[in-house]
Design a protein around this nucleic acid. Structure first.
Lengths: 221, 221
DNA sequence: CAACTATTCAATAGATTACTTGAATAGTGA
DNA sequence: TCACTATTCAAGTAATCTATTGAATAGTTG
């Protein structure tokens, strides 16, 4: 094998990872999987893709080692293969945020109240929780919460929020988080809570980033 | 704009970054550019692509914000837009190394002496240099060296190595580095130096990684 | 064993990508 | 202005990718 050949083959392999991350639907699947192990059916449902299509995307992610899977009975459960995949996703998201004007525009257009929702940093949050000053609110669906969440977090999915406001204390600070930095669940939760007179903030990043950052987590067995 | 629409559009934007990194030739160009500003012609030459093809790849990299360019006279010089791009590349390379069996196999097959060439870590190297124990050898071409190199590094491109062995001290430890972790220049330099009886090691990572890591650098004005 | 379920496979059409070729543009120097 | 150079643009072809459809596989349940 010549030098040139080696180099080209090596870069072609690196490019496989890029290719796996070159489709929006696959990235969305990847983010859902990052919340915890998921079956093909669940992933198809949340992503809005057909099962067959979902399966094919998952196999592409698997062939590049970004996700792994295990079979249990009829179902096949997919999971992120390694934390470095979440870090890679974070790096990609970061570059997109900082260098693509389109991302900025999208966030500006959709999350109009963005600037009012100051995010809360990880270390700062742990301190406030320790001091009993803060209620941490996980607004993801119950299954995602069950698969892993921040210590002591209260789980009220966004669509159930209105009915469970009595579980929250007026005057007590609330910090909401969801799947990731751009997950709209937390943005919306904060906006709605503020409407109701609560003191609410958004946690910068979501559960996967928190976990990869080496911060403590809890899960329901 | 609906929630679903927002999410899909956002992920589609993230996917643009993945797509930009989904081609081996583009990644190779990116690594060359990471050594310092380059004109289209130079990049076409080192990559072995036609000028038109190179230009088109560069424009894709530019449209996704991974590289930037400036025009000076007839020439257009491309550079990496931001350090976070080098970090993203590093994350991608890392995931590829750790999850693609093919990468392992390639490195094993081509760099047969790989295991004998223990890499030297950044901090460790700085110490040894400070103590005057080490000669740092940059085996990249002169232009790349001129655009930026490790402090006090001696520049002998690989193809000139045989003729400049007298500049190196027998018994003095030599640490060689080149473009990046998989650049074969340093591997080969170390192998050749050892044949000649020198004590040589390879620096883990290359110049871009060193620079992004916040370590000191020098350049020729 | 037969009916059923979750997932994967295979074939297809339409869209996208990579590379080549040759022309167009913009800047330089005589 | 004219010849020259570096780069970009535009058109065309072959290859690849995405999503859809319907069938095949593998495991479960009665």
């Amino acid at each position: 094998m010549s030098k040139i050949n080696f180099k080209q083959q090596l870069f072609a392999q690196f490019a496989r990872i890029g290719k796996a991350m070159s489709n929006g639907n696959r990235l969305e699947l990847l983010e859902f999987i990052a919340q915890g192990e998921r079956s093909v059916e669940e992933l198809a449902k949340v992503s809005g893709l057909t099962v067959a299509n979902t399966s094919q995307h998952l196999q592409q992610l698997r062939q590049t080692g970004l996700v792994a899977c295990r079979k249990e009975g009829l179902k096949v459960y997919y999971r992120i293969s390694d934390n470095d995949v979440i870090e890679l996703f974070g790096a990609l998201r970061g570059v997109a945020e900082r260098h693509l004007a389109e991302v900025d525009q999208l966030v500006q257009t959709y999350l109009t109240t963005k600037d009012n929702l100051e995010p809360v940093a990880h270390a700062e949050l742990l301190e406030r929780v320790r001091d009993g000053l803060v209620t941490v609110l996980d607004v993801r669906p119950h299954e995602e919460y069950a698969a892993g969440h921040l210590p002591g977090a209260l789980n009220i999915p966004l669509n159930e929020l209105e009915g469970h406001l009595d579980e929250l204390e007026q005057g007590h600070e609330i910090v909401a988080y969801c799947r990731g930095p751009h997950c709209i669940l937390a943005f919306e939760a904060v906006a709605r809570l503020r409407e109701k007179g609560f003191t609410a903030h958004r946690l910068e990043d979501g559960y996967p980033e928190w976990m990869v950052g080496g911060m403590p987590t809890e899960k329901i067995q």
